[in-house]
Design a protein around this nucleic acid. Sequence first.
RNA 1: GGAGGGGUGGCAGAGCGGUUGAAUGCACUGGUCUUGAAAACCAGCAUGCGUCUUACGGCGUAUCGAGGGUUCGAAUCCCUCCCCCUCCGCCA
Length: 419
Amino acid sequence: MLDLKLIRSDTERVKAALARRNAADSVDELLELDERRRQLLPEIEGTRSKRKQASERIGAAKKAGEDASEAIAAVRDLKVGLEQLENELEAVESRRDEIAAHLPNLPDPTSPDGFTDEDAELVREVGEIPQFDFPVRDHLELAGDGIEIEAAGRVSGARFAYLMGDMVMLEFALARYALEKLRGMGHEPVIPPVLVREEALFGTGFLPGDHDQIYELPKDELYLAGTSEVPLASLHADQILEADQLPIRYAGFSSCFRREAGAAGRDTHGIFRVHQFDKVEMFSFVKPEDAAAEHERILGIEESILTELGLPYRVVNVAAGDLGGSAAKKYDCEAWIPSQDRYRELTSCSNTTDFQARRLGCRYRPEPEAHPEFVNTLNGTAVAVGRTLIALLEVHQQKDGTVQIPDVLRDYGAPATIG
RNA sequence: GGAGGGGUGGCAGAGCGGUUGAAUGCACUGGUCUUGAAAACCAGCAUGCGUCUUACGGCGUAUCGAGGGUUCGAAUCCCUCCCCCUCCGCCA
């Protein structure tokens, strides 16, 4: 959610920023509604004030044993006009809120211009792209019986998979490795609920916009979270934190569910794009002045994980028009996928500034007695297990079709070799 | 799933139709006292929106789980929903 007062006071700057992501069109209507609301409010509040005073007089009169029926009749007349005004106000506010709820965050000045992943700005490339002197195998070939797609198709449909045997041990080693590393850096490990209410998705900015991407359980009015960002962010919804509690950092491990509507025909091979996968996610609540540094910090953790896993990658700064609704700025870390002969997104991290905090009602007191202000929130992928498995298998494959697993993971129970 | 009991300020806890944004206690902040601290005493201490003000802040209004209703007037009465607790049932 954007700050309405900012839109009001700095309209042209807000419009220009939103235009970078093609979202400035409804600002004028929003401002008209806002103005109408501020016309209505004094009328309504004035009438309410009269009613309140009259009611107090009635109460006093009755207490004194006097007849108040005339006064009551007079106040009753106030009600008719008041109800009309209140109805209009309600309509104005609900339309205003609807528009406001659909506006995305203002892109950061350092997010590059553009609207597609082509427009992302290359930040750096790290690691050697592996050269193989033998035919490259893809992750399904390398995993063998460890990834079972056909049965999953029969049981659950396309874009599902069974992970089995060594793949399972590898997943848990990855998760354990990431959680332990993050805990050492002040991120409290969390296993959150993955079935969440609408408010949690609204608060993180996934609703109302991304409705098509989200699994819904209408019978119970619950949704399957596409990332633990949702329940982690909601952990402090409607709270006023003290400044000395910040930063608050979490590392969530959860299954993630995505409908992948509109992705038909894309990435259909293997487990690159599936409806269900597990992920270790970082989430931070920080003071506004610390947000930019926290973003770089989270990016640094993502990079160090990729490096420790021996995965060559590049970092890109996502274009303003290609950002998710909540993000002001986003880095993607793309790992080299040998079978595709290109970099693919493995992790990403976003600075959502105060956008989610406003929706969630998550504030803090800058000073002990001060008025509360909105915190800033950030999120980043530590390990998206499915895609990390793909990269690990393919990058570390050997001529004989086996895979050498990095030492760091062996410390957490991963097999030394796969295949 | 069945039966019952509850949701009030940071916490505890009164109020159960009429100056109640809300008693009281704790916590917190400032002050008095003290060599210092504690104790004691005094004072202050919610948030949103709108408006005025250079500012401090003032004024109006809303908020006692959420939404709706009754009423001149609702934290208090009625309805729906959500959450928590106890017992029973079921269950990993």
